[in-house]
Design a protein around this nucleic acid. Structure first.
Lengths: 198, 198
DNA sequence: GTCTATATTTGGATAGAC
DNA sequence: GTCTATCCAAATATAGAC
């Protein structure tokens, strides 16, 4: 409650998030985060007293953004499935970046992160089930979305490798992008909606 | 090439894998791995000269197991989609455990792990596309499988929490298990196969 | 092949100046 | 509110005994 919207805290959380996404949990040290945020370690510690406080802050941010995301799904099959798939594929959104970082935390054994991710999964499923009225479609939509999140996480880590000694070999199966294009996203949404008591 | 099938190496890799899956990358220290494998740190180092060698060994194991898994998919739509979904849900299999551990490594920024996971994803997609002849179905099947892997990873980390003060509240949406049951798996497979030029 | 030291480095956190 | 300096614990890796 000091600077306008306590922007220092937010900038530090952004930096932590970016370190987690780009370098992994191991490399997301206080030094690295401080450097990325443009402050000293001491400056960082003033805002977040410990590493754990930093993690807790990020989890809390996800809970906030997650509530908005769930709400934005609406209650019709079209809106719920459509929003869920498109939102998952939009890896660069504030929500996507935070979700990915918290996923990394969860994977590192952070209990709060695991709990929050589980709760979010459950909420998504509830909305999808109510909106579609079909258990199989709801489950499938959720897994497709999770799969997209999973691929987004792998994709970001990768340094856009183009192997120089095997470009354009003709006749080999074409490489498909890790994330579905917008057109593919719409194909997926349509296919899921068509499945409803079909 | 000393003990029968150099079982010490394998036991150490098993221990490393288990540490990664149960505790996360951060906690998978040489001490922890040595303890889990029942050897001293020095004993471990004799077999794997560095932390990096340990990681490389695990990635290599996944490449071996991955080749078998891709081959087991077969070439019909039924066999490919069916095997892929069931294999993903079988989180406790040797392949599942290794895949999960390497996923954790990938998430921690290990470049070899990222590369191998990407290659595996591409191979799965190629087989699914050839077997189904349908881009949307192949992509959907792959994302569903990835989603299952993702949930399996979250599920294992969780210490089977049963929150004591909110059990069996009537009227709340029932909690669905993170991993689809065998019956649900078959529903998913059937739904995917029905989608083929439908 | 496996163990017990031990050296080296790094990461997390404190104290206190500005 | 932010910085520098410093302490302490933990993690990787080495050396060499058994």
């Amino acid at each position: 409650m000091t600077s306008p919207r306590s922007s220092a805290r937010e900038r530090i959380l952004d930096a932590y998030q970016a370190c987690l996404n780009d370098l992994g949990e191991r490399a997301a040290t206080l030094d690295a985060v401080a450097a990325a945020a443009g402050v000293s370690k001491g400056g960082l510690i003033y805002h977040f007293a410990s590493k754990e406080a930093l993690a807790a802050g990020l989890v809390e941010r996800l809970e906030r953004l997650g509530r908005d995301d769930v709400e934005a799904m609406g209650s019709t099959a079209e809106s719920a499935v459509g929003h869920f798939i498109r939102s998952a594929a939009h890896a660069q959104s504030p929500f996507g970046l935070t979700a990915q970082a918290v996923q990394t935390l969860a994977r590192s054994g952070h209990v709060g992160a695991v709990r929050t991710m589980h709760a979010l999964e459950q909420e998504w499923y509830d909305v999808l089930l109510r909106a579609t009225g079909d258990r199989v479609v709801a489950r499938m939509a959720q897994l497709v979305g999770d799969g997209i999140y999973y691929n987004a996480a792998l994709a970001v880590t990768e340094p856009a490798t183009v192997d120089p000694d095997e470009t354009g070999e003709p006749g080999e199966a074409e490489a498909h992008p890790a994330l579905p294009s917008p057109a593919e996203q719409e194909d997926l949404v349509r296919a899921l909606l068509r499945m409803i008591d079909d």
